[in-house]
Each structure stands twice: as C-alpha cells, then as structure tokens.
C-alpha cells in the first residue's frame, strides 16, 4: 500500500513538473531537506556552517573573491533550498556536467568558481581553497536526503515560454516601476537596511553581477523573475511582463565581462552570440558593454 501511495505521489509530481516548464512555477522544495539544527557538531559540521556563512554574507566571509555587493542568498532563496531559485543542493547533484558556456565538462567546484567570476564580479577561488570546500560541504550536507527524491529536475530555474510579443524596454520600464522599484530602487541600485547591511540586491550598475553572469541573459532572468519575484509573490507576473522587465533590467550596463577581448563587437561574437544577450546592442541610447558603468 505504501508503495502504491508513493507511486501515485511520484506520478502526480512528475505530471506537475511537466506543467512547471510552461508556467514557470515550480513545486515546493522537498521537505526532506535538513534544517540548520541538523548540522552535525563535528569538523564536517564546522565546514558546513562556514559554507552557510559564506552563502549568506559572501562579501564578508569570502571578501577576497567578491567584487560587488551581492551574496549567494540574494538569488538562491531560502539559503539555497528553494526550488525554482537554482537550489544549491540540486546543483550539487548535477555535476560534473558539460557546459556550453566553456565547452567542457565542469566539476561542481569549477561551477562555483564561475559564480565568483561572473555573478559576484570577483575572481575565482583556486580549486581546493577553503571557500570552495566550505560551499561544497554546505551543498553536500543539504542534498544528503535528496538523493532518494525523484524530483531532480529542480536544478536551476524552470524555463519560461517565449513571450507573445518581443520583449520591450518601454513596457519593462513600467513593469519595473510597478513591481520592482520598491525594493531594488529607481536606478536598480538595491537598498540597504538601516544598519548598513545590504537588504535588496543591486540589479545593474557597478555593484551588480557582470556581463558574464547567467542573470545577464534574458531567458534566465525572465524565468527567475517569473518564478521568484516580487519576493513572496512568485508566479504573479504574466510571462510577457517577466520578459519585458528582464529586458529592462538586462538593458542596463553592468561590469565588463571578464572575458572581454578589448572589443565589444568581438566579445559579443565570441561569448554573447545569442538573442538572449543584449551585450553590444544599442539599448536606450547606449551600447551595452561599452561602459562607463553607473555608480550605484
């Protein structure tokens, strides 16, 4: 009987997952994920806690490798647990994997290096560096019970259907003003709490992720926004609104792609030859990637 129930549950979740791909709203995180109180009180547990600290306040606990105001937790919600916000535990289970971005098989640690290089606009910690060991320990600890869970497609962010009209900067600007500006500010600069801690992350400008980050790609940004934004109201924007506002956000300049060759055109041809990147395009009177990047 138990097995039958499990099978029914599995079938239901698989059916729902199929739907997720179209509406951008994933299922909840599996409840099997451990809570903080389950972190073991031993040497491994210490490393897990260190990873959690780095994850929560990256600029403070991995200062040498961070070049902006962001922390891992700003995008990976629920401290890396939440399905639909590229949960850390599902990423851990997905590597080693081939990545078109660098045309080779990457280990999980190498994938973490890229987060620092692009999303954190910093530099990659060397392999074996305690920063990477701590983050990997945190991810491994989190996924420990997830191995037996069938819903491994929760890696990343559910894809979003293409919009019915091509994304528009002008429409996106309105969506932004109505839904995003409250927290991320009129100039995308984010907001700090009264005690100085970053509360809401900057979305463009010199303190945000650089042009090499996944979030600088329209499809990834639109999917993330649709699933997770505004905070607590994920799924409330229409697909069109999510694409439009992604275009508006990614239609602003940000720190240079670290793979920059010295020429925007060449860098676009080599690394941004996709309709999902606005790098090198003229948007709102400015060629993106040509700087200077606004001081937020």
């Amino acid at each position: 009987m138990k097995h039958l129930m499990a099978l029914v549950l599995l079938m239901t979740s698989l059916t729902t997952l199929g739907n997720d791909l179209s509406d951008g709203v994933p299922e909840e995180s599996p409840s099997v994920l451990p809570a903080d109180r389950d972190i073991p009180k031993d040497e491994f547990g210490k490393m897990v806690r260190q990873g959690q600290l780095i994850f929560s306040d990256t600029g403070q606990f991995a200062r040498a490798y961070v070049g902006n105001d962001l922390s891992c937790r700003n995008c990976h919600l629920d401290q890396g647990r939440k399905a639909g916000s590229a949960p850390l535990w599902a990423a851990f289970l997905s590597y080693p994997a081939y990545r078109a971005k660098n045309h080779r098989v990457n280990t999980f640690a190498e994938r973490l290096q890229e987060c620092f290089r692009y999303s954190m606009n910093g530099k990659a910690p060397p392999l074996g560096d305690p920063t990477l060991v701590a983050l990997e320990s945190y991810a491994y600890w989190m996924e420990k019970n997830a191995k037996i869970n069938p819903r491994l497609t929760e890696r990343g962010v559910p894809q979003l259907q293409k919009p019915s009209s091509p994304p528009s900067y002008e429409r996106g600007k309105i969506v932004y003003a109505n839904n995003c500006e409250l927290c991320h500010g009129a100039n995308g600069q984010g907001k700090r709490a009264n005690d100085g801690h970053l509360a809401f992350p900057p979305l463009w400008g010199n303190r945000s992720f650089n042009w090499g980050a996944g979030m600088a790609q329209l499809d990834k940004a639109a999917a993330y926004i649709k699933t997770n934004m505004p905070l607590s109201l994920g799924g409330s924007l229409s697909n069109q609104d999510a694409w439009d506002v992604a275009y508006f956000v990614d239609g602003h300049d940000r720190p240079q792609d670290p793979r920059y060759t010295g020429s925007v055109d060449e860098t676009r041809a080599l690394f941004h030859h996709t309709r999902n990147s606005l790098y090198g395009h003229l948007v709102a009177g400015h060629v993106l990637g040509s700087g200077p990047v606004s001081q937020n």
């Binding site: 907001k191 709490a193 009264n194």
Partner: peptide
C-alpha cells in the same frame, strides 16, 4: 530569519532588515 518558503513566506528580516531594524522608506523597523 528563514521564513517558511513552503508557503512562500519570506523571512521577515528579508524586507525589514537584520533584526527587524528597518529598510529605507517603505519597510518600517
């Protein structure tokens, strides 16, 4: 501090700041 994401409840501190000390003009302490 952690919210209850299974019900889409973010941590109070995410909007009201660490220890609920407030953020900007719209999120009171």
């Amino acid at each position: 501090i952690h919210g209850r994401w299974s019900e889409n409840i973010p941590p109070c501190d995410d909007c009201h700041g660490p220890e609920g000390k407030g953020v900007g003009e719209n999120f009171p302490a």
